[in-house]
Amino acid sequence: MLLTDGAGAPRGRFGWRRRIESLDPVRDHQEIHRITAGFEFPWDYTRSLEFALFRTYCVPSISALLARTGEFERRPQKRYDDTALLMAELVEHGYDSPRGKESLRVVNRMHGKYEISNADMLYVLTTFIYEPLDWIERYGWRPLHPHERIAAFHFYREVGLRMGIRDIPTDFQELYRFKADYERKHFRHTDEVHAIGVYTRDLFCSWFPGPARPAVRVGVHAMLDPMMLSAFGFRPAPGWVRSVAEAGLGVRARALRLFPPRRRSKSTRDPRNRTYPGYPVGYRPGDLGADRDRGSTRG
């Protein structure tokens, strides 16, 4: 049974961490992951998953498929919101809940329309596990508890099984090695990779006022590693830009240590969602997806 908002909310800044420590990371992985992503690090999970998706576009077969669908060229904001909200539904309600099952049906319906290799599907799954964990270790307001890392692995492994992904390793380190090897073998520059990279970068920039967008563009480049910059064909940002960005994230982390524990999960409540205003109020997971047009398609 997953927590409800405000139910059993802990006292003290490290109360949720104590709760996590008391749980079994395998048996209780859904509850632990909801605490981590929805209560403790919602902003970090959102930002890191933005860059996780960005990372997958360095694989030519993935970018070529996205280019063929035309979704990124026509409606990049909608595709971003669909993916973010469907994954958030699984975190918020659990993958075997009614809303979780509905979300998985939407995901599987969308993927089922295209020929996608099992290896590409598995690689994308790995980014949902490891990119947020790495981000939080660098920029989070506290270190992750080992239970949180194990819980994230088991959560997305179960999601992957329900998506029909085959040959998912049962070991945390083995799957991480698969991710690293896949990137070394498959990241490379193509016209489609570059085009999808530009669409995604420009989407990020569109969330800011016009005068700030050139600076945001440089900031995005500063947060990409050399493998991603090479694949996208982007010019590296000056070293001082990354230093400033990381210093700012460090200040944010230190400030957050002074905040009280969050009492309400923010998994599905992202103010940057422009396609489905007010989500989740008035919406079902079945309203989401590239073949659904309910709501605004701005962006």
Score class of each variant (00 low, 15 high):
residue 278 G to D: 11
residue 124 V to L: 07
residue 277 P to H: 03
residue 23 L to A: 04
residue 73 E to R: 13
residue 85 L to A: 10
residue 257 R to W: 02
residue 4 T to K: 06
residue 94 G to M: 12
residue 252 R to L: 05
residue 127 T to Y: 06
residue 109 R to N: 10
residue 190 T to Y: 00
residue 71 E to Y: 09
residue 172 F to Y: 14
residue 37 A to E: 14
residue 286 G to Q: 08
residue 278 G to E: 08
residue 197 G to L: 05
residue 193 V to C: 02
residue 16 W to L: 03
residue 123 Y to C: 07
residue 163 M to D: 05
residue 159 V to D: 00
residue 9 A to N: 06
residue 166 R to L: 12
residue 193 V to L: 01
residue 157 R to W: 04
residue 278 G to I: 09
residue 178 F to H: 03
residue 97 S to Q: 11
residue 34 R to K: 13
residue 178 F to G: 08
residue 100 G to S: 07
residue 44 D to N: 10
residue 169 P to R: 00
residue 66 L to Q: 13
residue 255 A to Q: 06
residue 220 V to N: 14
residue 223 M to W: 07
residue 29 H to T: 12
residue 165 I to E: 06
residue 210 G to R: 15
residue 223 M to H: 07
residue 60 P to A: 00
residue 207 W to F: 15
residue 141 W to D: 00
residue 95 Y to F: 09
residue 61 S to E: 12
residue 9 A to Y: 00
residue 35 I to D: 13
residue 170 T to V: 04
residue 90 L to Q: 01
residue 103 S to E: 06
residue 253 A to K: 02
residue 98 P to D: 07
residue 67 A to D: 08
residue 44 D to K: 04
residue 173 Q to Y: 05
residue 160 G to C: 03
residue 273 N to F: 08
residue 38 G to T: 12
residue 80 Y to G: 15
residue 229 L to Y: 01
residue 84 A to F: 13
residue 101 K to M: 04
residue 274 R to C: 02
residue 212 A to R: 03
residue 185 K to L: 11
residue 2 L to C: 02
residue 27 R to P: 09
residue 274 R to W: 04
residue 262 R to V: 01
residue 114 Y to F: 15
residue 17 R to V: 13
residue 284 R to Y: 07
residue 166 R to K: 13
residue 189 H to T: 06
residue 79 R to Q: 13
residue 254 R to S: 02
residue 276 Y to R: 13
residue 41 F to Q: 08
residue 209 P to Y: 15
residue 155 F to K: 02
residue 65 L to G: 14
residue 6 G to T: 07
residue 173 Q to I: 03
residue 124 V to I: 13
residue 13 R to I: 00
residue 73 E to P: 05
residue 222 A to V: 11
residue 288 L to M: 08
residue 116 I to K: 00
residue 106 V to I: 15
residue 119 A to T: 08
residue 146 P to H: 04
residue 209 P to S: 03
residue 144 L to S: 09
residue 111 H to Q: 08
residue 261 P to E: 07
residue 295 G to R: 07
residue 133 L to C: 14
residue 199 Y to R: 14
residue 162 R to F: 05
residue 175 L to Q: 04
residue 65 L to Q: 15
residue 192 E to S: 10
residue 145 H to R: 14
residue 189 H to V: 08
residue 46 T to P: 15
residue 37 A to M: 09
residue 212 A to F: 13
residue 271 P to A: 04
residue 39 F to L: 14
residue 118 N to W: 07
residue 226 P to Q: 05
residue 236 P to M: 05
residue 25 P to R: 03
residue 170 T to H: 05
residue 171 D to W: 09
residue 247 A to G: 14
residue 281 V to S: 02
residue 74 R to V: 09
residue 114 Y to K: 01
residue 90 L to T: 06
residue 103 S to H: 10
